[in-house]
Simulated assay, not measured.
Amino acid sequence: MAEQLTDVDGVGESKAETLREAGYETVEDLKRASQDELAETENVGKALAARIKADVGGLEVEETEEEFVEEEEEEEGEVAEVVSAASLSDKTPELDDETRDALDKRAAQNNPSFKRQDHHKKKRVSADSWRKLRGNNSKRRKNIKGKGAEVGIGYGKPAEARGLHPSGFEEVLVHRPEDLDDVDADTQAVRIGGSVGGRKRERIEERALDEEVRVLNPTHVEGEE
């Protein structure tokens, strides 16, 4: 049973704030309200009102399945457009000149791909599972030309840009809306964990939009790249 407004099906943080402004402070307030009253609330609509009443109990207005699906798809389309804005894809961090120059230098670097020695001799050995070279007779360890590049200090990235996203933001991994509490929107961007479900992802993106925090892996919206 839902205990908070954000626990109700279809209600994210922004919708919860809309409901609170309309006078629905608790889940009990939603139970006492009729579906028509909820539908007349600004930015709620019939589809979301039906979802709310179905979740908290007391679904009253009968609709054909086809009408309900059409309205729900329309409502979900509106939510998807709002969520897409949460990516704030054009937003850039506040960087000093030294960090910005370091990012430009890092982007201009064209380092080779470091492959594991003799990976082609055994199928079970991945080319990308690099290991430090230790063999006394290793020609690559001796830096003999044509035997492949070996990891060295000369290939290092600028220290000022190390660990930063190409946009310049510091990445913060989040799994729930509360993880945004300590995020600095001016210098940090969030990446939503791969194990986060769709409903919680929507709540995270809605809150990120409200707080103008950039989401590096927002929900894909058809028509966008």
Rank of each mutant, 00 (worst) to 15 (best):
D101Q: 15
L173H: 08
E70S: 06
T64E: 09
D179Q: 05
L133R: 11
S167Y: 02
E224D: 13
K142F: 07
D182S: 11
L173E: 14
V174D: 03
L180E: 04
K31D: 01
E72S: 14
R134W: 09
V61K: 15
G45A: 06
E94G: 07
G197N: 15
G154F: 04
D29F: 08
S167M: 03
T92P: 01
A2T: 10
L88F: 14
S129L: 07
E73V: 08
K145C: 03
K200S: 09
E62W: 03
D182H: 06
R201Q: 03
K115W: 12
F68R: 15
I192T: 07
E25N: 10
V82L: 14
V183P: 03
D184P: 05
A185W: 05
F114T: 05
T219E: 07
L5P: 04
P218I: 06
L173D: 09
A54L: 13
L173I: 14
K145R: 11
D182G: 01
D9I: 12
E13S: 14
D29E: 03
L164R: 07
Y155I: 01
K142D: 08
S195A: 13
R203A: 14
A86V: 01
L216C: 04
E74R: 14
M1T: 10
D182M: 02
K200T: 15
L5N: 03
A39M: 06
N136Q: 11
S138Y: 08
N136W: 09
P158E: 07
V172H: 04
V221W: 08
E205M: 10
D210Q: 15
V79M: 09
L180K: 06
D182L: 04
D36V: 13
K132I: 09
G154E: 10
Y155W: 14
E60F: 01
G198C: 03
G193I: 04
E211A: 11
V196I: 06
S126G: 10
R214K: 15
R207A: 13
V44H: 07
E67S: 11
L164P: 07
A102F: 05
I153K: 15
S129D: 15
R134C: 04
E211V: 07
V215A: 02
E205R: 05
T187M: 02
A50P: 00
R106P: 01
G135I: 00
H165C: 05
T64Q: 06
I144N: 08
P218C: 02
E78I: 10
K15I: 12
N111S: 02
R207L: 15
R141V: 00
E202C: 09
K142H: 15
E76F: 06
P93V: 01
E202H: 12
L88K: 09
D128Y: 14
